[in-house]
Amino acid sequence: MKVFSNEETFNYSWEEVSTANWRKYCPWNDKSTHVIAVDTLSRHVDPATGILRTERLITCKQSAPKWLASLMGGTDISQVFETSYVDPESKKVTMVSQNLTFANIINVRETVVYQPLSATKTQFKQDAQITALCGGWQKVKSAVEDATVSRFRENAIKGKEGFEAVLEMSRRVFSEEKMKQREQQEKMAL
């Protein structure tokens, strides 16, 4: 098993980050282009705790190294199942995900947590456990795990850049909407 961990700080409030997180993979993010679709499978608010629970299916298209691609049957489409929990009271978003595709070859479990550091700063924490399951040589397993870890590292850098772009656009659109509303209210008052 290999582990990939990463931490980032975003200079936006937790409310802004947790909202923009729902559209992290929209066209404003021109970095994380390996994510081609995000579908919501179920969603509900727990009446006892107020926690919002969501299930999503994330579809990725990313070419693997040639030797790995042949092991994976030549397809470059893969899918990830994610369950997320938003606790608005303690201001915490937790997202747990695992791979659906290639589940017989490799097991990838990732946990992402967003929590506020201050009123204007939010921390992103990412942990992934990668375990190759393919029988046989330890060398092959190790190589499969290493290739997955380096893919995680590449995607993490792109993910941060792409999400920054989404946050910036979200803030701009929000302030424009507010301005429009104010103009309209002023017009009505006249």
């Binding site: 727990d46 705790t49 926690i51 629970r53 899918q79 199942f81 929990y85 695992q98 659906l100």
Partner: peptide, 19 residues
């Protein structure tokens, strides 16, 4: 595939659905 993954995720609920 989703059915199987859902089974695996049940333990996460126990961890994250309480305050």
């Amino acid at each position: 595939m989703l059915e199987e993954a859902r089974e695996d995720h049940k333990e996460n609920d126990a961890l994250n659905m309480r305050r």
